[in-house]
Computed example of a mutant assay.
Amino acid sequence: MNAMETADLAAGRGAMGAGLVVAGIVVLALLIGMFLFGSRRVRANDSRRPRPEEQPRMPEGGPVREVREHREPEEMPRTDERLTPHELKGHGNAGTRTGAGEGRPRWHEGGSGGFGSGGPGAH
């Protein structure tokens, strides 16, 4: 191979490399354009944001507090045949009633914090 052929090969590789760079830039520009177009379309289809007067307001009596209560389960009917769920009374808490006012168990001074904590436990 002489010097002229080597220069032609180098020029061909340089043109090919430049062509790949240009093709990469074109693909990148297309991807960015598609992303921007898609995000505008999504924003256009979104529902509008609520105005300040449409925002939720606090109730008249102040914030609503959590109610804790002990619920007693409803007795299971005793039958010889199999019952399906729709034949049972109530769903969820609808079939239960408020139980006796048993308080939650509380930690007592001198009691252990948990199993294996090394404390003497409540006696």
Rank of each mutant, 00 (worst) to 15 (best):
E74I: 01
M76W: 14
V64S: 10
S117A: 13
M16F: 15
E81R: 13
V67Q: 10
D8K: 12
D8P: 01
R71Q: 14
R13M: 14
R104Q: 13
R106C: 07
V21K: 13
A122Q: 14
L30K: 08
R82S: 09
P52S: 10
E69P: 01
G101P: 07
H86V: 10
S47T: 05
R48V: 08
E109C: 11
G33M: 00
P52G: 05
G119D: 11
A11H: 02
S39V: 04
G95T: 04
A100E: 10
H86I: 10
T96H: 08
R106F: 10
E5D: 11
R43Y: 00
D80P: 02
E102C: 00
V64F: 04
A94Y: 09
T98I: 12
H108S: 13
G14V: 06
A7T: 04
G111A: 14
G12R: 10
A15G: 05
A29D: 03
F37L: 11
R57H: 12
E81H: 07
E54A: 12
G38R: 07
E87F: 05
E69I: 03
E66T: 11
M16K: 14
P52I: 08
E69M: 07
G119W: 07
K89E: 03
P50D: 07
R68Y: 14
R78D: 06
E102R: 06
G118C: 09
V26N: 01
R78K: 09
F115G: 03
R104W: 09
Q55L: 15
E87G: 08
R43F: 00
R43H: 00
G113Q: 15
M16T: 15
G114Y: 02
G119P: 10
V21D: 14
S47D: 03
G113F: 15
P73I: 05
S47R: 05
V64C: 03
D8Q: 13
P56A: 13
G113A: 15
R13W: 12
E60K: 03
P120H: 01
D8A: 12
R68S: 13
L20C: 13
T98W: 01
V22M: 05
G24Y: 03
A23S: 06
G14D: 11
M58P: 08
T79L: 12
G116R: 06
R48F: 01
E69N: 01
G19R: 09
G62E: 08
D80M: 05
H91A: 07
V42S: 00
P85H: 09
A23V: 03
R82G: 06
E102G: 06
